[in-house]
Every structure is written in structure tokens, then in C-alpha cells.
Design a protein around this nucleic acid. Structure first.
Lengths: 158, 158, 158, 158
DNA sequence: TTTT
DNA sequence: TTTT
């Protein structure tokens, strides 16, 4: 009943988005996003860099936009919330993966997007047209049909 | 050289802060913070709640303030960045834990804090006095058992 | 088609919320929120404080919640966007006022709220009941004198 | 002693940065940044757009970087805090202008910057070299010599 | 006054 | 695995 759980990222995709669909037909995109920070070492004066990798999940309309417009190297602004999910590895052990459930996506490359407001929200039937989904976002996704929210059929989900 | 990696949390501590020190004498506090969201189920009209747990690391002055002023149940505002670190479990397997490296802390309980600006920044020698460190933040920290979810060595707490 | 415009505040109300209604019946609340920062002067070692005042506008359900639960002194988390609007003063001169159009409100006082998720979003007809509006949020709002800093007409409060 | 006052913008410069210097020699840059939001009108289905203009102030090193690397049209990420300052117009009336005092700047154009971490912080004497200031940031600025923090000699400062 |  |  109380709480703020907010993540803001600006970074680049390390790979093309992975697009899947749930059995109920919802698109879900997984992005790997790198954020780098650089600084100069106080002692040596050397320039240092540290890259952090983030796993971002985008559902439905945002996932479709990601599948259509984002590629390896794309620069994006992402807003979302942290979610840690539990899964079981091959040896039966509990494992945890922390992901960012994105609710806002802005493409920052000048190539442009053709898309307007990409904040996630309840779909206004009039303004959203499923036929705009890219084939890429549909076909290969359907054939995997993972469970909603998780239990993706990867061996190494993180 | 590029990137924003920012987390903002408002939530409550699930336990007293764990306080440790590095060999070089730096204080490090680990907080477990819960953020909850509630909503009403569209179908059933039932009130739903989901709690997310976050692991927050506070270094040096912020860690000391946490040790001095925060307790189980304290409500806080935290700002920081995501960091996923790799560790090796007992069976020799690679494991990953995502933490928030906090750089700002605000206590939101009305009891107050006596502290002013708690943004982390390079220490101004004049205004910071190591002797203000609470005893609690120093000695007893070492004697606590490390948290099971980790393989902390007290000398290298992070 | 591009842009992020986000404000995050944690602060206290300097006065009870002002509640009004538009002709179309939408509630609008105006909050005056103070955020303070303190620091120690580098030269004198003196403790300094600076308070900043923010004008926050909350519409519809958020405005009603504000009217019902917030009072002078209440501590809140607000998220919203900046909006500068132009108005004309008595002498016919153009004037500008910058406000925060809030889209998220969290009450941070321990007294609690009884409210769950207060993120603004399209109203789900089932879960929202206009009869929950507080009387305070409706009738007396109209009778209040507009704030001097503005030239509000009660019919067009924004 | 309490409060969060944070602004996050991603937008484009409407004009080249204005660069000045205070009498004490500090560089100060003023940016005009546009953030746009677009949506589709529920009734007409028409695409709508609203642009908001922000006045961003960058001090010292950040101001110098802005003067060197930013131009009209540049896309930037800005983080800062809101500050409303009072000034007096020609007729002696009090006026108020709300600005964002920036403490983080990220250039989002692919042209690159040559700069690393641009978070504002106390200057590390070793790593900061005043001779890196661009001539553009110096010469024209000195001849105006406004007061620190405000009272710029513009007729229309907002 | 920017951008898509 | 990205980017500068």
C-alpha cells in the first residue's frame, strides 16, 4: 500500500531485442541494455570505465515497438520498476533474476521511430491497431509460447 | 562514456540494517527494503498487493547514518544505481545478485534524524568528523553472521 | 514525439490543499509543497537551509484523494511533469507560472491513507465510485477566494 | 532537512546555449530545452502534440561543457532541481521565474562529446584544467559580468 | 525556439 | 553483448 519502485535507464542495446509471445497472445520483448560510467582514477589519472548490463522486459504494445524499431546498438531511455523473479535451475536449486519491467520507452537515435507516445497504458481501442504489429514481432514469437510473466524455456534465463 | 542508471525507491526496511566494515575501515550498510503496490483486480474487484524486496548498499557516511538512524520498519527514500555482482556458491557455480548502490538517503519517519544533507559526496574534511560515527556502526558489525543469501567474507563485504 | 519531462518531489504541504471543480465537474487540487535542503557552509561551518516552494496540480481522482487525506504539514511524494502557463495580470501584462502537473501521489505520513495505488490512469468504471468523493472536496471549494498569485476564474481553474 | 527536488528532462535545445561568467569567474550556461509529448485525440483520432519549454542553468564545468558541445537542436538528458527566483521588472513589480539548476548532463547525439562523466561535483584539482574552457565560453561572457546566481541584466529574463 |  |  505504499512504495515507489522506479528505474530510469539511458543506454544501448547489446543485442537485438528478443521477442516472444505468451499463450494468451501478449508480446513480450527482452532487452539487454548497457549503461556505462567513466571516471578518472584519482591516483593514476587513468580513465576508467565500468559497464553495467540490465535486463529489461517490455510487454504488449511496448514490446511490439521494441521488436519493430530497436536493434543492437540502439540508444534508448527506459523507465520501469524492479522485479526479482525466482526460478529453478537444472540441479533443482532456487535462483533469482532481477529485471526491469519497463513502462516507458523512448528511442534516442535520430533515425526516428514513427511512433508517438510510448507510455504503457490501458489500450484505447480506437487508437491501437493490432495490424500494425511487425511480422518480426509475431511469427517467431508464437512458436515458442512461453508462460505469461516468466518460466521462459531458456536454460539460462539470466 | 554514456548512460544513466538510476533507481528511486520509497519503502520500508524489512530488518535492521546490517553494518560491516571493510579492511580499509570503510563502513558498508546493507538494507532490505520493501516496496508494495496495490491494485484492484479487474475481474474480481478484489484488492491485490505485491511486495518487491530490494537489497540496498550504502557506503561510508551514508552507511554510518543508516546504522545510526534506521531500524526495521523505517520508511526511507533511496536513490542509487543498479549493480549486479557475480559470486560463487558452495558448489562452485556462478551466481548473480543485483543490488542498489545508494547515493542518497532520506529518512521519512517523523521521528527525524538530526542529519542534514545525506547525499554522498567527496568528504569535506572540515565538516565531517569520524568521531561522530556511532559505536554500533563499528564494533558490533563484525560479529554478525553474514546473511545466508550471500557468501560474504567480513573482510570483503562487497 | 520525443521527450521526457519528469519531476519528483518529497516534501511537506505549506497549507491545506485548495480544491476546486471545473464546469465539467472535474476536481482539481492545488498543493503548495516545500522541499528543503541543508548543508554546512564551507567557510563558516554554519548550518544553512534553503527552502523551495512548488505549486502542484492534481486532477480528478488524485485531486479528490488530496482533498480527503492531505492537510497542511502532510509529507508527500509527488511525481509529475513541468508545465508553464501564461496568464494576464491586472495591468494586461503577460505572466508565466510554472506548475507541476502531478500524476502520482504517495502519502508519507504514518497516519496512513486507506488508499492504494494512486497513479493517475484512465478510470476503470468498475473500481471507481464518484460517491467516494469527500464533501470537503466538493462544496466548500467553490466558495474559496482564488489565490492572489493567479487570476483563476472558478470555472476555468487551470 | 528534508526533501527531494528532482527534475529529469530529455529534450532538444531550441537555441545555442547562452554562456556568461559571474564576476568571480564562474561560467554559467542557460539552455532552452523543449520536451514534446504526442497523443491521439480520443474523439477525433487526430494526432496532437504539446511542447513544453524549460530553462536550464548549468554552472562551472557543466556550463563549459554545454558551451563547447551543445548547439541548437542538440538532444540532451538533464537532471537537476527546480528553483524559482524573484526579480523585479521595469515597472518595479515582483516577477518569478522557475528554472532547473542542472547537476547532470548527458549528450544524446551520436556526434559524441569527448567528455566523460559530467556529473557536477567538487572539482578534483588534478583532473580539471581550466585551460580546457572553450574561447566561446569565455570572452563574450566576461563583458557582461552578471551577479552570481541571478540578477542577469536582461530585460526579459524569462 | 527544438525535435519527430 | 552496447556505446563513446
Amino acid at each position: 500500500m505504499s512504495g515507489i519502485n522506479k528505474v530510469i535507464l539511458v543506454g544501448n542495446l547489446g543485442a537485438d531485442p528478443e521477442i516472444r509471445s505468451t499463450q494468451s497472445g501478449d508480446t513480450v520483448a527482452t532487452l539487454r541494455i548497457a549503461t556505462s560510467e567513466t571516471w578518472r582514477d584519482k591516483q593514476t589519472g587513468e580513465r576508467m570505465e565500468r559497464t553495467e548490463w540490465h535486463r529489461v522486459i517490455l510487454w504488449r504494445r511496448l514490446g511490439e515497438i521494441a521488436g519493430q524499431y530497436l536493434r543492437k546498438g540502439s540508444k534508448v531511455y527506459i523507465e520501469g520498476k524492479l522485479q526479482t523473479r525466482k526460478w529453478t535451475d537444472q540441479s533443482g536449486q532456487d535462483r533469482y533474476t532481477t529485471e526491469i519491467q519497463g513502462n516507458e520507452l523512448q528511442m534516442l537515435d535520430s533515425r526516428g521511430s514513427g511512433e508517438g507516445d510510448t507510455t504503457e497504458r490501458p489500450r484505447e481501442s480506437a487508437s491501437y491497431n493490432r495490424s500494425t504489429e511487425s511480422p518480426r514481432a509475431q511469427a517467431p514469437a508464437q512458436s515458442r509460447a512461453p508462460e505469461p510473466h516468466q518460466d521462459f524455456d531458456d536454460d539460462i534465463p539470466f
